[in-house]
Amino acid sequence: MKCEDVSNELIAYLDRRANSAERQEVEAHLAGCAACRTRAEEFRKLWTVLDEVPMIEPSAAFDARVRQRIASEPERGWFARLVPQPRLAFSVALLVALSVWLAGRPVDRPASFANAPSEEEQFQMIDHLGVLENFDVLTKSDVLSELPPRATQEQAPAHDEARPKGDGG
């Protein structure tokens, strides 16, 4: 056992609380270490010196004062009885206040949601779903893409001219 190791067991050895194995280890070390032996002896003397501090006597009114303080204790309310710890009570109050504040706050939607169609628009879109699907099929149709570009340009005005007539008649 080294001096550093004996230090933790020295107090227990001196106040006779070390077990027999610990006691033997400390005794074996002290037998061969003069420095630790001196320290142990000085600890014994120190404890005698510490006994020199006199005790003080509590005042004669001590008990009466305790009784008085007990008697003047206000009856604890239901909240104080439910929450005996002030820190806990504060935390609960803070949590409630935070919840109320969060509930009353306007909800910030992400930017991607800002342009999202409203519920009414979504219903209208469902109504026109068939037309939209047809439009989608037509725009991606291979037959149309195979047509020469000029023919499409020429046909387009004719179609435009024909339409007012049709609408009017």
């Binding site: 014994r44 003397k45 010196v49 006994d51």
Partner: peptide, 16 residues
């Protein structure tokens, strides 16, 4: 103080 102990009252504190 350790080097110069005074006669202390017996029976006080832990036995050394």
């Amino acid at each position: 103080l350790v080097a110069q102990p005074v006669a202390h009252r017996a029976g006080e504190g832990r036995p050394s």
